[in-house]
Write a protein that binds this DNA or RNA. Sequence first.
DNA 1: CGTGGCTATGAAAGCGCTTTCAGGGTCGAA
DNA 2: TTCGACCCTGAAAGCGCTTTCATAGCCACG
Lengths: 333, 333
Amino acid sequence: MKALSGSKAATVYEVAQRAGVSIATVSRALRGSELVTEKTRERVRAAAAELRFTPNRSGRSLAEGRHAANGIVFPDLVGPYYAEVVLGYEETAAGFGSSVLILATQRRPDAAEAVRELAGRVDGLAIMGQTVGDDVVEEIAATGLPLVLLARDPVAGVDTIRTRNEGTAASLTEHLLGHGYRSFAFLGDPEAAPDVAGRYAGLAAALAAHGLDVPEPVPCALDLESGRKAALKLLRDPPDAVVGANDEVALGVYLAREEGAGRTAITGWDDLLAARFAGLTTVAQPMRELGATAARWLHERINTNPPPAPRRRVLPTQLVVRRSCGPHPPEEL
Amino acid sequence: MKALSGSKAATVYEVAQRAGVSIATVSRALRGSELVTEKTRERVRAAAAELRFTPNRSGRSLAEGRHAANGIVFPDLVGPYYAEVVLGYEETAAGFGSSVLILATQRRPDAAEAVRELAGRVDGLAIMGQTVGDDVVEEIAATGLPLVLLARDPVAGVDTIRTRNEGTAASLTEHLLGHGYRSFAFLGDPEAAPDVAGRYAGLAAALAAHGLDVPEPVPCALDLESGRKAALKLLRDPPDAVVGANDEVALGVYLAREEGAGRTAITGWDDLLAARFAGLTTVAQPMRELGATAARWLHERINTNPPPAPRRRVLPTQLVVRRSCGPHPPEEL
DNA sequence: CGTGGCTATGAAAGCGCTTTCAGGGTCGAA
DNA sequence: TTCGACCCTGAAAGCGCTTTCATAGCCACG
């Protein structure tokens, strides 16, 4: 089961032999221990360089009892949302000297198994959104592996970081009401993701508070094409405003509208770059911060004894008003 | 140097003891070896479940002599370009049973050291664009670690995958010439990235072929704001067309133009989602395919003996014409 | 010149796992 | 009943590294 290619890599033993020292000294010299003469260190360095020695991290991990690596599990990297989160995570983890393993569950049937396998490679794990079920989360948490959940409903005893959905969705709705809109549609499946559920709940709450009809959500995948298709149906009898669960859906509606279907107001969520150029009213989230906080919390949990009490945090989000929700100031309809 | 938190994880020894078998049997049972009775396997499974056993991957890696993990090094994940590549890479690597370690060099001063460290954790490594110098690439290649370079100039003996820049840039230029444009500006620093250099070279070649002036490139970072600022200066005396090194730069020019500076034609590169909504003429690249190919090549190189000869491939790119380069058909202006 | 106290180094154990090799048990055939 | 064949299991080695513990060598001091 050995790797087949190339000449076998050099090990501490060969470096030690070449430098005329013991493997203990090699390790010390290369790790920067104070316990080696500068002269010896140089000799070891030279030998290592000649042999192109690259320490095998598995050996070190095993000896040290830690991986110096963290993992992050996310659905995919389509759209900047997850990419930004991952980037924030990686940056912060790297600052703590940890490598980062990624796992995109996409629609893999064996996602749970992949996550379990990943758990054996890391000192801590961040799990985003709808990637694996709570049962898997609980199972892994029970092993004692430090865990933090991102953009997903909390699980007992596990750290959770989310972004504000409900409140900002309500603000967004108020804004739309200010435009004079009275009939609404929501595009997205609250069952599919807690984030979507929160956004719908915020809309529903605000409408209910004004004594208006709360529309049933229109189930819709979170991509451009799904949004467009859903909108083409919807816009036959267009509501005053369509609230998309995210920007991609909203931009899909945008496309449908260009194809002739009315002049309904549209809003999204995420503040993609495209939203800016489409003039889409949306909600911005601190994605990088989300990832960074996850990495920081994991680091704390890994290095604190006894482990801190589980924490939960909701990061603020911000309404970004552009022209897709109608003309401003809102005098003319 | 032990991890501090939590109770220590279960090992094969404890599972073995609990199941009343040897560690060899535990390993076999859990790995699905044929050599274990179904009854024994069940007993082991039960013990493992009770102890919440998660195999330590370092132990396995050490014993097997392989990491079952690949790495990918990229500058950052800002913009969908790298994210898509990483996603394609991860997906394919996962298909081969390899985990993926990411390293975003951002502007870390210790990028080279981080890459060396990463090299000790993986069976193969993909290195993108301007992350580390050729010296580091050569150094790592010399250790025998399978390597593939992405979107970067080849290094002797190392696989390289790129996307077509020069040819498509020339086509783009021809298109702009067809519009009747005669004066051009290029926004981007050819020194900064081989991709940018290729795009500039294609532009220059096409212009030269028509006996037109070849403008000096206007150095500019590859983000929106840099593009906007560069454009604000540039558009005081606007050329007929501005060719941005990527979409973000081009969209920056777009913003500057909205601020009142002329009606210069604009083109970008990458075909971001935002490009579609801004109506930006640009060039689409098979980013996912780029990452996927890298993972496939690495897998082949890792598992082939003797190693295959170094390969190079240039993936095709495609001109996407939208309205930012002027009205079509190109009669007027 | 002897001795104690350092300091640089080496020997060896051990991290958790896989795998080879050997052996005990069981069963069928003689 | 005995013997060989075969199957399942266990003992143990070994993957590459870190770290503890012991020690050889050195210097300063008495």
